[in-house]
Computed example of a mutant assay.
Amino acid sequence: MIRVVVSGAYGRMGREVVKAVCKTEDMELVGAADKKGEGLDAGSVAEAGITGIIIENDLEKVLARTRPDVAVDFTGPQAAYHNAISCINHRVRPVVGTTGMNPDQIQKIIELSETAGIGGLIAPNFAIGALLMMKFAAEAARHFPNVEIIELHHDQKLDAPSGTAIKTAEVIMEQREGKSFQEPVSEYEKIPGARGGEFEGGIRIHSVRLPGLVAHQEVIFGGLGQTLTIRHDSLSRESFMPGVLLGIRKAMRLEKVVYGLEKIMFEQ
């Protein structure tokens, strides 16, 4: 039985994780932490039934008392970084779905976990379809001279562009082996930022934030007389749960934190 703590248990993603863990036979919810919802039953908040697991506002105390195997984090970028460090210090495997941490923070977590011999996962996206989208985009990148990424999320998302968009751009550039995409012959923005943000290699990323959206992304490749669009849509937060549960199970076998669910999803 894998003992799980959920950090950010009062949030929308945290509630889904609580519900998913409670429904999973090989996992046990042993703790819940959040700055909001203190004193409420985590299962009741997640509409998973009364669990007796009360949401607390101090993750450190939850980790020390419950001694879980894994702590799943869906909080905010700065909180997630410090939470992951705390997990490793308590010899708890962090599974982080929070996006917005910078590369230096991610590398610090990986290095600390490797020194401690503690496995874990940082995943910009837990949707299996999103991982396949990135895999297909990486393959297409070898054959097209131009690409742009459009990511669309709900209006409460804090970071832009999304972690998924950045990760997609990274795997695309890995396939290009340092070769940049073609840039427009000439360009004049009448409104600054109209052409989106520019990632390395000439990849443009556009971020849309609107109520009614959950998480969506399309990668549009252009070539002579043709375009190729690869799109993924998460229509509910349930779409992330199979990946979260996979990440929890895989973290138990890892000896350091891994960045990207695809690193363990596609392993054979």
Rank of each mutant, 00 (worst) to 15 (best):
F126T: 01
I128Y: 08
G129N: 08
G129M: 06
G129W: 02
G129L: 10
L131K: 03
L131H: 05
L132F: 14
M133Y: 03
M134E: 08
K135A: 09
K135G: 06
F136N: 14
A137N: 13
A138D: 14
A138W: 11
R142A: 11
R142S: 12
R142H: 11
H143Q: 11
P145N: 02
P145V: 00
N146M: 08
V147C: 06
V147Y: 00
V147P: 00
E148A: 14
E148R: 14
E148I: 11
I149L: 12
I149W: 09
I150K: 11
I150Q: 06
E151P: 04
E151F: 10
E151Q: 11
H153E: 14
H153Y: 13
H154N: 14
H154E: 15
H154V: 10
D155V: 09
K157W: 14
K157N: 14
K157G: 13
L158S: 14
L158R: 15
D159I: 15
D159R: 14
D159C: 13
D159N: 15
A160M: 11
P161E: 09
S162C: 11
S162L: 05
G163I: 03
G163V: 08
T164G: 02
T164N: 08
A165G: 03
A165K: 00
I166P: 03
T168L: 01
T168I: 03
T168M: 03
A169L: 04
E170W: 01
I172Q: 00
Q175V: 02
R176W: 05
G178H: 05
G178P: 02
K179L: 07
K179W: 07
K179C: 09
F181Q: 00
Q182D: 02
Q182F: 00
E183Q: 09
P184E: 01
V185H: 10
S186C: 15
S186P: 13
E187K: 12
E187G: 08
Y188L: 11
K190H: 10
K190A: 11
I191R: 11
P192N: 07
G193K: 02
G193L: 06
A194P: 01
R195V: 02
R195Q: 07
R195I: 03
G196N: 01
G197N: 01
G197M: 06
E198S: 12
F199L: 04
F199M: 00
F199A: 00
F199Y: 04
F199E: 00
E200Y: 10
E200V: 13
G201I: 04
G202Y: 06
I203W: 04
R204C: 05
I205S: 12
H206R: 13
H206T: 12
S207N: 09
R209M: 10
R209G: 05
R209E: 09
L210K: 15
P211S: 13
P211W: 12
G212H: 07
V214L: 09
H216D: 15
E218N: 09
E218A: 08
V219L: 12
V219Y: 07
I220K: 08
I220G: 03
G222Y: 02
G222W: 04
G223V: 08
L224Y: 15
G225V: 12
Q226K: 14
Q226I: 15
Q226C: 15
L228D: 03
